[in-house]
């Protein structure tokens, strides 16, 4: 499950619905942008840019409980990680982003429907 339902429920409880929805919308913006940055950096062989974008994506994913995406990003952002195929890692992350966005969009629809 891309987004941890317990974490998401806690977050929804800690915030007003309106605020929660705003955080989810901002996450959606951030995550799309960062995923594109990772893909571009991988293609360009920009290791620093790749790791920095992965760091940002890990933080954003962690904030909304997207555990799988967060874990994948943390693995590649580590300075000690050896990334054999950055493009493959970027594709893997992009797939996780897509799955996460489905969950986030569904959660957003629920909140906005309240």
């Amino acid at each position: 499950m891309p987004v941890d339902p317990v974490f998401a429920a806690d977050l929804a409880r800690d915030l007003d619905p309106e605020d929660y929805a705003r955080v989810l919308r901002l996450f959606r913006q951030d995550v799309v942008q960062l995923s594109e940055t990772i893909t571009r950096a991988a293609a360009a062989g920009d290791d620093t840019g790749f790791r920095r974008a992965a760091h940002g994506l890990a933080g954003a994913a962690g904030a909304v409980g997207a555990k799988a995406l967060e874990t994948a990003c943390r693995i590649v952002m580590s300075p000690r990680a050896v990334i054999a195929d950055p493009n493959a890692s970027a594709r893997e992350i992009a797939d996780l982003v897509a799955a996460t966005l489905l969950d986030i969009t569904a959660a957003l629809a629920r909140v906005e429907g309240q």
Partner: peptide
């Protein structure tokens, strides 16, 4: 001090609260 909007907004909401 946070460059990710979602993370920053979340922190702002928590801290404001």
């Amino acid at each position: 001090v946070e460059d990710q909007q979602a993370q920053a907004e979340l922190a702002r909401l928590f801290i404001g609260g």
